[in-house]
Amino acid sequence: MGALLADVAAWFGDSANWTGAAGVPNRVLEHLQYSIVPILLALLIAVPIGAAVGHSGRGGFLVVGVANGMRSLPELGVLTILVTFMSVGLLPVTIALLILAIPPLLAGTYAGVSNVDRAVVDAARGMGMTEPEILTKVELPNALPLIIGGLRTATLQVIATAAIAAFVGVDGLGRILFSGLAVRDYTRMAAGALLIAVLALLADAALAALQRLIVSPGLRTSTSSRRRAVVAPAQPEQLPQSRSTTPEPELARS
């Protein structure tokens, strides 16, 4: 163990590992690039759907079902199928990571929006906010802790899983890990794994800082802002009951 640590340290100390296309900086950039695209796409897909369903209160079971279904898909299996039908390359990797990123964001946005205090939404509507105004000025700002929680989960998983890109001929930090595996070079494997872990943690720290920056201080006083969307699926199942006890605010005839 001590020997491995020393070897890994030596690997990081070797300037040859820091230059060129196979160098650490370039692999980190590639890895980030492979990760950011599916995360952004997932945000574009999951947040609007989660918000719309959370706002309307209809179709919640569908969202939870889809999210859980996608969560249970094995990434490597998905990737293999995609590669079989498409070809090797970045596209199947992006799709596989997208499937990974959507569930926590969808569940987080849905739970965040639908858990906003009904009295608060009622007051917003009663003061004359239109439905889009209620969503953007009240529900989404209040859902932000859970949305960012979902984003953090998605980011961690995507960065960790993006290593599989190297399986299908794309690079990234996975390349370091798998090229080590191919020649049983445990030092290189450990270095690759370590880089992936550090990158994931740094990304999480950056999102935590973002969370502190954009979540209203008013939401921090009462509840922890580190709630994660991973707990979300349990909540929507209770929702139909908790809703029916308070009279549903009716939408105006239009």
Partner: peptide, 25 residues
């Protein structure tokens, strides 16, 4: 019922039991 509901509501003050204040503002 003649006009727009949101428009109508902006001209009527509304206070509820649970206050319904916006926690984020």
């Amino acid at each position: 019922m003649a006009g727009d509901a949101a428009q109508l509501r902006r001209g009527i003050g509304y206070v509820i039991q649970q206050s319904g204040l916006f926690p984020h503002r």
